[in-house]
């Protein structure tokens, strides 16, 4: 427990906060008040096949993790917020009110991971077509392949004859 009242860790010299889901908004609000006025990046990780990752004491790993990178221009500092999101209820409040620039980033996380952001003003798919099924960056979503038209293996090719 530290300055912001949430578990904190050090990842290769970078400061990381691990708030619980209900502490997420208050923590980010405190960080904003503390001078972290830019949200540089917001993304997510699906830890489906790697649940044993190391986390500080008191943090229970869930399937999803939303990672927010904040930046203070004044102090030239960065801080990272990692919040655990359970697979059974993949939702998180939006940061839109504090950092309007997260609009597109949260839409991307929704599109790729199927994590819903409550009160987001326009939660639609951003990169995939709007009628797409599934969430491509989840670990249980196959990469898949499409048949190739041409091949250097001419003997096997339908067009060899």
């Amino acid at each position: 427990m530290t300055q912001y009242g949430v578990p904190e860790s050090d990842s290769r010299g970078q400061r990381v906060l691990h708030p619980a889901r209900e502490q997420y908004l208050p923590t980010v609000r405190a960080l904003l008040a503390d001078g972290f006025e830019v949200c540089a990046d917001l993304t997510a990780v699906d830890y489906l096949t790697f649940p044993q990752r190391s986390l500080p004491a008191g943090v229970v790993g869930e399937r999803f993790e939303v990672v927010v990178n904040l930046l203070s221009i004044e102090r030239r500092e960065r801080i990272r917020v990692r919040v655990q999101v359970p697979a059974a209820d993949p939702t998180l409040p939006t940061l839109f009110d504090m950092y309007p620039g997260t609009e597109a980033m949260e839409r991307e996380v929704f599109d790729m991971f199927g994590i819903g952001f409550t009160d987001h003003p326009d939660l639609t798919r951003i990169l995939m077509p709007e009628d797409w099924d599934g969430y491509p960056l989840r670990k249980d979503y196959d990469q898949g392949s499409i048949p190739v038209q041409f091949s250097t293996d001419f003997a096997q090719s339908d067009r060899s004859g």
């Binding site: 209820d89 993949p90 994590i115 951003i126």
Partner: peptide
Amino acid sequence: MNDIVATIRAGNDPAQG
């Protein structure tokens, strides 16, 4: 699980445009 996301989306039109 997707029901919850669907509920959140219910207030949103799925169209991007």
